[in-house]
Structures are given as C-alpha cells and as structure tokens.
C-alpha cells in the first residue's frame, strides 16, 4: 500500500469507532426508558399503520438506478481523460486529445437523446 494511505486507513477506523463507542457508552449513561408498547409503534401521525411497509414501490426508481449506473461508468472514463488533457495539448496533440472523447461522448449523447425522446427520463 502506498505509505500515504496508511494514516488514511487508521483515520477511517477511528472515524468508524467514534459513533460506535459513543452509542455504546451513552447506552449505559442514559436514564432507563419507561412506557408501554404504544411508544414503539411506527409513527404515522397518530393512526395505526394499516399496510406493511415491505410492499412494492415505484419501478421507476429502478430504471433511474440503471441509467445512473451507465452514466457513472461514462463519468469514470472522463476522469483519466481530463487528467491527461493539458499534457496532450502541450505536446501539440490537440486532435488526439479531443476526437476520441468526442466520439465517446457523441455515442452516449445519441443514447441520451433517444432516452429523452422516449420519455424514459420523465420522473426519471
């Protein structure tokens, strides 16, 4: 592991420990809880819930997640390109810097326009 990441690893363990330790410590410092079973019902503005929460929800959300996944991959491809862009320009490779990525983005733009027209992005 590059040595610079080891403090980061220790830091993330410390960050994980902070809420855990606080929760555990204060569980014993708190005064005890009192009250009947009504307190533990799920909150629905005073009425009892009628249906189970483990039901079905909008399928639209799943399509959004799929499209997000694809655009996420596209974004990840953009990062290495952005990092080398100015280097290519300095080496007078402007066409090489621009064209491959424009082709890539163009193909995905075609896809995006199709999605737009098809209505897949509505409430998406």
């Amino acid at each position: 592991m590059p040595p610079a990441y080891i403090p980061l690893l220790l830091f993330s363990l410390l960050v994980l420990a902070f809420p855990v330790v606080t929760l555990i410590v204060f569980k014993y410092l708190r005064p005890g809880s009192r009250g009947g079973p009504a307190k533990f019902q799920p909150y629905e503005c005073g009425i009892l819930p009628e249906t189970s929460t483990r039901g079905r929800y909008f399928a639209r959300f799943y399509i959004i997640a799929m499209l997000f996944m694809i655009l996420n991959v596209e974004t990840i491809f953009l990062f290495p390109w952005a990092v080398l862009f100015r280097g290519w320009l300095a080496a007078h490779l402007a066409a090489f810097a621009l064209l491959p990525m424009f082709v890539f983005l163009g193909v995905l733009l075609v896809g995006y326009v199709w999605l737009y027209k098809k209505g897949a992005l509505d409430l998406a």
Partner: peptide, 25 residues
Amino acid sequence: TLFGTYLLPFEIASVLLLVAMVGAV
C-alpha cells in the same frame, strides 16, 4: 494506456454502454 493501446476497446465501450441504456429502457 487507456488512450494509447486500448483506444479501440474504449470506443467500443461507449457502444456497449449505449446498448445497455437502450436495452434497460
């Protein structure tokens, strides 16, 4: 490496993503 040796697979990846988008919808 991505934009040197593997430029063609990179462009094909864009087509793959396009296919995925269209297929999902």
